[in-house]
Design a protein around this nucleic acid. Structure first.
Length: 851
RNA sequence: GCCCGAGUGGCGGAAUGGUAGACGCAGCGGAUUCAAAAUCCGCCGCCGCAAGGCGUGUCGGUUCGAGUCCGACCUCGGGCACCA
């Protein structure tokens, strides 16, 4: 080979690694283990550049840790259930299973040439019956431990297609296919009792010291612990069996500012009125319009309806307050009822202005006034305020003190109880869809809800289904649906809901430790390999996936599937940024956007067009997603330049935690750099010099680089590690050191580069006679003696601006430095004969002369 | 609307409160070449002939010294429980 040829080199080394079994995870109790895991991909069809970035990061860590002597587990699998497979079946025909396994085959074939150090023998897909059967088995275990129950919960209902919609299928409040106004409808659904663990999940965040602070904050806010007052408001006249309305409030200190009592359209009292009165029914129907997301509810126009009913104020029985039904109150949250205090809440203020309800203040700024009618006064709870209509505690106190005093007052006087609540709601796992893990339960006419017998698992998805009409094919599949009861053998029906795909991804990390076990996990394997030492994934999973996994690990421990040490399954978390790209759209006949991929679009100076010249609207730079088609295919880069170029490119430049906007330029330059390293290695014998001072300088730079690159990898600063490798390559190229020194330096450079560009590293390693494979060679150690610098350059600032610099021995005393500084020309010129007001010498760093 | 981030040259970015712009890309100039490719050398924040001045989203503050700390705001991105 007269020049570096990745097309020839890369497959050769991949075969060599396979033959040597380099990446097989070995359960070896004599060695420390290291489990590195990247969030597994959804098999969307092809890998995109974000995958390359994500998996290369994990690979760098895996290869580095392996070189440091750890027994490494680095597996790969597929998050294979989910809606896109069903959408594909609806749009193009075919079966979700074929589409999914076809995509997996393509993506696996695309990933293998990347040369990732993955133990492919552990691969599985969550849609494999072997996997989801074990998940069903755990579902039954969870049922036995009381962690599963059913209750009514709202869904997005498309009244035309008569089907449940996912949030992303609701666009501007309308169904994506039918265009009908979506309504919120209640359905009986399955839930995991994650709320049982709310307090623990919150407290344990403190121990997640190797997680990003932002993720810990987001999780803590999501769980949302609050202390408040639960209280009953008595109706002046009982109605339909209801004589009081339960309300929870975190601001009981504002009780005297209550203007109305609001209830959800799904509150039992509202339901009763709805059945009796046409006007209430009409309002409730209107109030239920729109999607279920918190965003949709928070931003929708606030609507209210005065029921005419009244409740008595708990602090003043003669004070009667109207009961309204309001569209922004959800039955799922708290008690489904609130008291409205317009003086100190923006939403309640808007509502009262709109419907002409009274607005009074309960507190004002401690030393000032406020026009409460114009704007609510909403200070931090920690702020001290003056109570104008207080009933507990001091007149001037903080909100926090006042809340505590109000709770104490309520408990002493018997009208309410202090309660700790969490924002976290139970995990609704029911999906009215086909392509998911069947919930292993049977509904028997006489026995009720009965779990399937474990020996009958997995409950397999039937293959003979069609997607020619909306709704869940399982619902209209009589031979699958009609079964006999596992208990009494009588007629029964299978549960047709399948599980949320977040369930699949909540324990796959544990399954990787024993992917073929006949139980969900093998405790001996889990005991060795768990926990995941380094988990890597997108920040978009900061809350749901990670919180659900934390819950699942606890539930699995309760059921004996994980050791106690694994209730927090991820020791360290790194959230990499997303790969973003601008979006391109044209308008379809119906006026809705039609998205285009970057390779369909030609960018021009003043815009963008399709191949046929149609003008394209350039949308915002957002995360790459299939639905918006702003995805870039990395395969042509790999085909053209090789995997190492793709790997090096995604690790350089951008810090890994940051979003990176993909641009095509730069791959060419990366390729040149890698070819240069190869050439420098090949030319060593020819150009080697003999100057021993040059040898010492090169080896000193080498040790500096070992230290910097090691720190870079340990600290997830891959871009900085790459910069140091560039720097050292430049030093090497200019060096006149001996062939022996250059060989040593180049072997070290190859090893330092090997986590990022393993194929090139092997090629260089072999060329220079390195022992064995570069991949299995130990990681180099920097000699501390070689890292010491004896002189430093000190910048001299005058009034904080740099004016000169001096070179001094590293440990020179401050008094000596001062003498040199005061003798400096630039300093004397600035002083102009005067004495400095102040002379600040920070040893080894800087000098500042204040004039 | 609520929670969490991010804003530094033409571009990606670097910088324990201590020389802003390491390293890379792009660009410009040169060497080599019949020519090109490849390679090598040099320049490269903005204004200015220069001296010098100005510069890290905006405004204000703390400090001998602020990209970094504090306060207010602007813009962009992520999440908001059925996208994964």
């Amino acid at each position: 080979m007269s020049r570096y040829d990745p097309a020839q080199s890369e497959p050769k080394w991949q075969q060599a690694w396979d033959a040597a079994g380099c990446f097989a995870a070995r359960h070896d109790p004599s060695r420390p283990k290291y489990y590195v895991l990247e969030m597994f991909p959804y098999p969307s069809g092809r890998i995109h550049i974000g995958h390359v970035r994500n998996y290369t990061m994990g690979d760098v860590v895996a290869r580095y840790k392996s070189s440091c002597g750890f027994s490494v587990l680095h597996p790969m699998g597929w998050d294979a259930f989910g809606m896109p497979a069903e959408n594909a079946a609806m749009e193009r025909g075919g079966h979700p299973k074929d589409w999914t396994y076809g995509n997996i085959a393509v993506m696996r074939d695309q990933m293998k040439p990347l040369g990732l150090s993955i133990d492919w023998s552990r691969e599985f897909a969550t849609c494999d019956p072997e996997y989801y059967g074990q998940q069903q088995s755990m579902f039954i275990d969870f049922m036995e431990k009381g962690l599963v129950y059913r209750k009514a919960a709202v869904v997005n209902w498309d009244p035309v297609d008569m089907t449940v919609l996912a949030n992303e299928q609701v666009i501007d409040g309308r169904g994506w296919r039918s265009g009908a106004e979506v309504e919120r409808r209640e359905l009986t659904q399955w839930f995991f009792k994650i709320s049982d663990f709310a307090g623990e999940l919150l407290e344990a965040i403190e121990g997640l010291t190797h997680w990003p602070e932002k993720v810990r904050l987001m999780q803590a806010n999501w769980i949302g612990k609050s202390r408040g007052l639960q209280m009953g408001w008595a109706l002046t006249a009982p109605h339909a069996g209801t004589d009081r309305i339960e309300v929870y409030t975190t601001r009981p200190d504002t009780l005297m500012g209550a203007s109305f009592l609001g209830i959800s359209p799904d509150h039992p009292l509202a339901r009763a009125l709805e059945a009796e009165r046409a006007d209430v029914a009409a309002f409730c129907a209107e109030a239920r319009k729109g999607g279920t997301t918190e965003e949709a509810i928070e931003t929708a126009e606030k609507l209210g309806f005065d029921t005419g009913l009244k409740v008595r104020h708990p602090l003043d029985p003669t004070w009667e307050i109207p009961v309204w039904i309001a569209n922004f109150i959800l039955m799922d949250y708290g008690t489904g009822a609130i008291f409205g205090c317009p003086g100190h809440d923006q939403r309640d203020h808007d509502f009262c202005v709109k419907y002409g309800l009274p607005i009074v203040d309960t507190f004002l700024p401690a030393g000032g006034s406020w026009d409460i009618g114009a704007e609510p006064y909403v200070p931090q709870k920690s702020e001290t305020v003056r109570y104008t209509r207080g009933f507990a505690g001091a007149e001037v106190q903080t909100g926090e003190e006042a809340v505590d005093a109000a709770i104490a007052h309520a408990e002493a006087n018997g009208y309410g109880t202090g309660v700790t609540k969490y924002r976290l709601r139970d995990w609704g796992l029911s999906r009215q869809r086909y392509w998911g893990c069947p919930i292993p339960v049977v509904h028997c006419e006489s026995c009720g809800v009965v779990p399937e017998k474990k020996e009958n698992l997995p409950v397999r998805l039937p293959d003979d289904v069609s997607f020619d009409k909306p709704g869940n094919p399982l619902d209209r599949h009589p031979t699958w649906r009609d079964v006999s009861c596992p208990v009494c053998r009588g007629p029964a029906k299978r549960e047709t809901d399948t599980m949320d795909t977040f369930v699949d991804s909540s324990w796959y990390f544990a399954r990787f430790t024993a992917p073929h076990a006949r139980t969900p996990t093998d405790l001996a394997e889990a005991g060795y390999w768990m926990n995941v030492d380094q988990y890597i994934g997108g920040i978009e999973h900061a809350i749901l996936h990670l919180l659900y996994s934390r819950f699942f690990a606890r539930a699995m421990h309760v059921c004996g599937h994980l050791p106690a040490k694994s209730v927090e399954p991820f020791n360290a978390l790194f959230t990499q940024g997303m790969v973003t790209h601008e979006t391109y759209s044209t308008r379809g006949k119906d006026g809705r956007p039609v998205w285009h991929t970057p390779d369909e679009v030609t960018r021009t100076a003043d815009g963008a067009t399709l191949a046929d010249g149609t003008a394209v609207e350039i949308g915002p730079v957002i995360k790459m997603s299939k639905s918006k088609k702003n995805v870039v295919d990395p395969m042509d880069i790999i085909a053209r330049y090789g995997a190492d170029t793709a790997r090096w490119f995604v690790m350089s430049d951008s810090p890994p935690e940051r979003d990176v906007e993909w641009t095509a330029s730069g791959a060419e330059a990366t390729q040149k750099h890698l070819a240069r390293v190869w050439r420098l290695a090949a030319e060593i014998e020819v150009r080697g010099g003999t100057d021993t001072r040059e040898d010492a300088a090169l080896l000193k730079a080498m040790h500096r680089t070992v230290a910097d690159v090691t720190a870079g990898i340990e600290g997830f600063a891959f871009n900085k590690a790459v910069a140091k490798l560039y720097e050292f390559t430049n030093t090497f190229a200019k060096s006149d050191a001996s062939a022996a020194a250059k060989t040593e330096a180049m072997l070290t450079l190859a090893k330092l580069m090997s986590p990022m560009v393993p194929h090139l590293a092997e090629e260089v390693w072999a060329m220079l006679g390195g022992a064995g494979l570069a991949t299995t060679a130990p990681w180099p150690k920097a000699d501390p003696a070689m890292l010491v610098e004896d002189r430093v350059t000190l910048p001299i600032q005058i009034n904080g601006k740099r004016r000169a610099e001096i070179s001094v021995p590293k440990d020179m005393a401050a008094s000596e430095v001062e003498k040199i500084v005061l003798a400096d020309d630039a300093v004397n010129k600035a002083l102009d004969g005067a004495t400095p007001k102040k002379l600040i010498v920070v040893p080894g760093r800087i000098v500042n002369v204040v004039i």
